[in-house]
Nucleic acid binder design. Sequence first.
DNA 1: TCTATCCGTAACCAGTATAGTTTCAGATCA
DNA 2: TGATCTGAAACTATACTGGTTACGGATAGA
Lengths: 148, 148
Amino acid sequence: MATTRDTRLAVAVHILTLLAQQSEEDPLTSEYIAGSVNTNPVFIRRVLGLLSRAGLVASQPGVGGGWRLQRDAASISLLDVYEAVGAGPLLALHHRQPNPDCLIGRNIQRTLLHYFGEAEVAFKQMLARQTIAQVLERAREGELSPPA
Amino acid sequence: MATTRDTRLAVAVHILTLLAQQSEEDPLTSEYIAGSVNTNPVFIRRVLGLLSRAGLVASQPGVGGGWRLQRDAASISLLDVYEAVGAGPLLALHHRQPNPDCLIGRNIQRTLLHYFGEAEVAFKQMLARQTIAQVLERAREGELSPPA
DNA sequence: TCTATCCGTAACCAGTATAGTTTCAGATCA
DNA sequence: TGATCTGAAACTATACTGGTTACGGATAGA
């Protein structure tokens, strides 16, 4: 199956939140994590590979091995995670170069880059204020409120 | 060809900017617009259909027909356009339901919805401040600066 | 040293979305 | 009546996401 949209950020945050509630001495395997996310271990390892390259997690192979956080959950912002999974720009420009013989055509892309860029900055600034520790806390709080 | 990312917002803003510099009596055809965007008229008409349903443009069939703005360019924000083209949420959640037997699994999606939602609001608030009139003005300004 | 476990990665596949293309019915105007 | 333009359907090529299988290499423990 595929349902097509990129879910790597959601999965990455899920993974990091799992690791954040785990003790240092008890790493989680990609198999276990896949069970919580409800997907397959290979996809989890692919995402963990991105997080590892960004220095957010580290792995240990072999019996009793698995993954653990490399940084305090309160120091990992969602922007860190967003950048770690390497998502492209939020808004795409034209696939093909617009017509350079047209006033709008030859200026639109630079202009869009400016305005789209401002919106993306606002988006990232908000992500920068949110941390894995907050996500974990809020997920725990969800348990307290009576189920609807 | 396809290059896959959704370019409808970029194309929609391009279209509206073209129409914004056009006089009321001289509508533009989808064929002409396609020439500026450098794509085919059918795709342009598909996007124009969305803008039309949102009340931003109107069409007239027949000889001398075409498209014109229905609202002042200064009153059309990029958020209006964004919503008109009906883009989905910026950040996807998991494709499959996470494991409900896991604390994180059963709370992560609601939690992500909250934090992702805040980032999306910030993004949209910025788009709401930008107008087609500004885009047109900035595209014209680009002409004045010496080419690099 | 041997074996079980776990990572790391490649390869391949299925499902889906974008947008290019062709085609044609219907509206409008001269 | 005929030229022009919209509106929409149908089909296609391309590319992306993530599911799946497979296997090499590292590690720990018996």
